[in-house]
Computed example of a mutant assay.
Amino acid sequence: MAKESFLKKLFANKIFANILIMIAILGVLITLTLVGLNFYTRHNQSITVPNVKGLQVNEAASFLSTAGLKYEVVDSVYRRGGTPGAILEQVPKASSQIKVGRTVFLTVQAFGQQMVSVPDLTDYSQRQAVSLLEALGFTNIQINEVYSEYKDLVISVEYNNKPLKKGQKVPIDAFVRMQVGNGIAEPAADSTDTVKPETKTPKSDESFF
């Protein structure tokens, strides 16, 4: 009887009753959260990522949606010979195992031609200048020797027969001409003993130094 009386008094206490209600609500919230997380992540359910490289984004979207995946285009880059809009890279890679509902990140071929900023190469050595241009991605480089007592030093870099300004952007496939000193001072106007400047294409295996 004493025990029953104690329990009645305990449950009659409003503070204790409120604590019990709060504990019950907290338990329900935790349960709902765990159930929701399990539903969202589709725990223990995984699928194979399809290969969408080479496809256009709208084509890839159909494949990925059918597989239960989302997609996001995160970057566009320019590659010579690439098809504009085609997917170049995907993360995760094809055949990877991921959960349903996850996102596949895509890199696509740019629609426009890549433009590259050309630094000021005046007074660089020919080898240094060629190496820098090749590192930037240029492949169409012509060397044109001109009269100058400073042999193999760059006088200017030209595009469309006009000297490039520092930081000027040109297409990555552009034909650029480098004016380089031939080590011979420009002869006087009436001199007949002259050496004709040369035009040549740099060797691709020349080192930076």
Rank of each mutant, 00 (worst) to 15 (best):
Ile87Ser: 08
Gln90Pro: 03
Val91Thr: 10
Pro92Lys: 06
Pro92Asn: 09
Lys93Asn: 03
Lys93Ser: 02
Lys93Cys: 01
Ala94Phe: 10
Ser95Ala: 09
Ser95Met: 10
Ser96Val: 05
Ser96Pro: 07
Gln97Met: 14
Gln97Leu: 15
Gln97Cys: 03
Ile98Gln: 13
Ile98Ala: 11
Ile98Pro: 15
Lys99Phe: 13
Lys99Ser: 15
Lys99Thr: 15
Lys99Met: 14
Lys99Trp: 14
Lys99Ile: 10
Val100Asn: 11
Val100Tyr: 15
Gly101Gln: 07
Gly101Glu: 09
Gly101Ala: 05
Arg102Leu: 02
Thr103Gly: 02
Val104Asp: 05
Val104Lys: 06
Phe105Ile: 00
Phe105Lys: 08
Phe105Leu: 03
Leu106Ser: 08
Thr107Met: 05
Val108Cys: 08
Val108Ser: 06
Val108Phe: 08
Gln109Ile: 09
Gln109Ala: 07
Gln109Gly: 07
Ala110Gly: 14
Ala110Trp: 14
Phe111Thr: 14
Gly112Gln: 11
Gly112Val: 06
Gly112Cys: 01
Gln113Met: 13
Gln114Val: 12
Gln114Ser: 12
Met115Asp: 03
Ser117Asp: 11
Ser117Ile: 07
Val118Thr: 05
Val118Pro: 06
Val118Tyr: 08
Val118Leu: 02
Asp120Met: 09
Asp120Lys: 09
Leu121Phe: 14
Leu121Thr: 10
Leu121Ala: 12
Thr122Pro: 02
Asp123Phe: 14
Asp123His: 13
Asp123Val: 09
Tyr124Gln: 00
Ser125Val: 00
Ser125Thr: 13
Gln126Ile: 07
Gln126Gly: 03
Arg127Gly: 00
Arg127Glu: 10
Gln128Tyr: 13
Gln128His: 12
Ala129Val: 06
Val130Asn: 05
Ser131His: 14
Ser131Gln: 05
Ser131Val: 02
Leu133Asp: 04
Glu134Lys: 12
Glu134Thr: 07
Gly137His: 04
Gly137Lys: 00
Gly137Val: 01
Phe138Leu: 03
Thr139Arg: 06
Thr139Asn: 08
Thr139Gly: 03
Asn140Val: 00
Ile141Phe: 14
Ile141Asn: 08
Gln142Trp: 06
Ile143Leu: 06
Ile143Thr: 02
Ile143Tyr: 01
Asn144Tyr: 12
Asn144Arg: 12
Asn144Gly: 01
Asn144Gln: 13
Asn144Ile: 07
Val146Ser: 08
Val146Leu: 05
Val146Ile: 12
Val146Met: 06
Tyr147Lys: 00
Ser148Thr: 02
Ser148Phe: 05
Ser148Gln: 01
Ser148Asn: 10
Ser148Glu: 01
Glu149Gln: 02
Glu149His: 01
Tyr150Cys: 00
Tyr150Trp: 04
Tyr150Ala: 04
Lys151Pro: 05
Asp152Ile: 02
Asp152Met: 06
Asp152Pro: 04
Leu153Gly: 00
Val154His: 12
Val154Pro: 15
Ile155Phe: 10
Ile155Asn: 05
Ser156Glu: 12
Ser156Val: 04
Val157Glu: 09
Glu158Met: 13
Glu158Val: 10
Glu158Tyr: 14
Tyr159Gln: 09
